[in-house]
Amino acid sequence: MATKAFVAQASQPEKFRRVYVWEFPVRLYHWVNALCVVVLCVTGYLIGRPLAITYSSEAYQQYWFGTVRFLHFVTAFVFFFNFLVRLYWGFVGNQYAKWSNFIPNHRAQWREMIEVMKVDVLQTRVQGLITLGHNALAGLIYFLSFLAFLFQSLTGFALYSSMSQARLPRLFAWITPLMGGDFAVRQWHHIFMWFFIWFTLVHVYLVFYHDYIEGRGTTSSMVGGWKFDSDKRDEK
């Protein structure tokens, strides 16, 4: 794969140069998505297990549960369209945004995954390969998370279809009988929330881990788009 990275001239550490990895749409997508997921998990959890709140007021005086649900639904729409944008960008974005990063259809990607397992997860090897974009294992996990996004959107809109007259949710009505009724759809929709929670925990930890180990600004890369890369690598 040819490297099309921009090489920045300023503020460059001795051995590293700046590489523009995450294009603006990817970064925007990422943070909108991150925010949506957090909001959806919190509101979703509350929908599933409402708080026991005090009841000094009458029902007509408050609407907090309705508001929580409203937030969930509004966020759901943002989440869904944001997700569609990212799907599109997988076709037109730079090499780090492309679908080929996510779907392990080369033997090399599988070999890389084993290597990442050895170096980063099991730590049977102290150091090893460092990639600019996602490593193959991360790519696969992101791919799975895209599938989870899709699943969550399908089940969410299927549930929403029976309480909405809007056209979009109605498009998903067929999913409910397919999955055996609203109860089952809700159960799965709820269970998948946990995937997002686990994903976020591990994901954020790993971002910090890579930053710590590699010292090349992994965390901030999703803000500014730049990562650091070693010149020596190119020399090799």
Binding site: M1, Q127, G128, I130, T131, Y212, I213, R233
Partner: peptide, 18 residues
């Protein structure tokens, strides 16, 4: 495990992906 790498700064240069 990665004490040396981190503290002693003994970075052997990473391998490039490509």
């Amino acid at each position: 495990r990665k004490h040396e790498l981190l503290v002693q700064g003994k970075h052997s240069e990473p391998k490039a992906k490509e």
